[in-house]
Amino acid sequence: NLVFGLLIAWVLVRYKFPGKKIVDALVDLPFALPTAVAGISLTALLAGNGWIGQYLEPLGIQLAFKPAGIVIALIFIGLPFVVRTVQPVLEDAEKELEEAATSLGATRLQIFVKVILPSITPALLTGFAMAFARAVGEYGSVIFIAGNMPMISEITPLIIIGKLEQYDYAGATAVAVVMLVISFVLLLIINALQAWQRRHAGAPA
């Protein structure tokens, strides 16, 4: 999501091409779709008899009901957070700094790494944190494509539900607390990185 979210935001901001508005609208599709519909749609596409899966399975590539399918589902529902967080920052970026770097002989890679990336890093980290927080507790879009096969493609929310159905409230609470701690620690790290980035950006050259 970090890599492809940044690439999509970059293309939408910096380039003009036919169908740009359609691509821009498709970025918000995971927000508009009910999560269960997204899960069923992805399963229908990637299953062995699906539109895409039927061509991949003869090659030995199985996506549905495997960890790879879970990854695809989480990328689908998390990507918009990164794109929509980075996009406005790229739009507001000062082109004069890039032009000045170019006039001083900087390559395009150097301009991106030393001029653009530092300015968008806080937004990139924020988008990542939101996508991760959404993914940790995601249920609807993952439950169908995961298959919940023990030790292969189990998902945490379904483990919690299974324990609740067995009246194992202590077990369900333990799993939920672990998820909460992981999310909380990651958010603390992201906030610390953002604070450091803001101090670094505001420091005199």
Rank of each mutant, 00 (worst) to 15 (best):
Leu97Asp: 13
Ser119Ala: 08
Gly78Tyr: 01
Phe76Met: 07
Lys20Ala: 06
Val23Ala: 09
Trp51Cys: 08
Ser119Cys: 12
Arg14His: 10
Ala135Met: 07
Ala174His: 08
Leu186Tyr: 01
Thr121Trp: 13
Leu193Trp: 04
Leu187Thr: 03
Ala47Lys: 14
Ile155Asn: 00
Gly50Val: 11
Leu90Met: 12
Glu94Ala: 05
Lys20Ile: 08
Thr126Gly: 15
Val3Arg: 11
Glu98Asn: 06
His200Ala: 15
Pro58Glu: 07
Glu98Lys: 12
Arg14Gly: 03
Pro88Leu: 04
Leu90Gln: 02
Ala36Asp: 07
Leu12Lys: 06
Gln54Ser: 14
Gly127Lys: 01
Met151Arg: 14
Gly60Asp: 05
Pro58Gly: 01
Gln87Ile: 00
Phe128Val: 11
Leu158Lys: 11
Ala174Cys: 10
Ser153Ala: 04
Ala73Glu: 02
Val71Cys: 08
Val181Arg: 02
Thr43Ile: 01
Asp168His: 11
His200Gln: 12
Leu46Met: 11
Pro18Ala: 11
Tyr169Trp: 14
Ile120Leu: 04
Leu104Pro: 02
Pro150Cys: 02
Phe128Met: 13
Thr102Pro: 05
Val37Leu: 14
Gly48Leu: 09
Ala64Gln: 10
Arg199Tyr: 00
Ala205Ile: 09
Ile116Gln: 15
Asn148Ile: 04
Pro122Asp: 00
Ala131Ile: 03
Ile145His: 02
Leu29Cys: 04
Gln54Leu: 02
Arg108Pro: 09
Leu117Ile: 00
Ala146Ser: 15
Ala135Phe: 08
Asn191Gly: 08
Val115Trp: 03
Gln110Gly: 07
Lys21Asn: 14
Ala64Pro: 00
Ser141Ile: 04
Leu187Pro: 03
Ala203Ile: 07
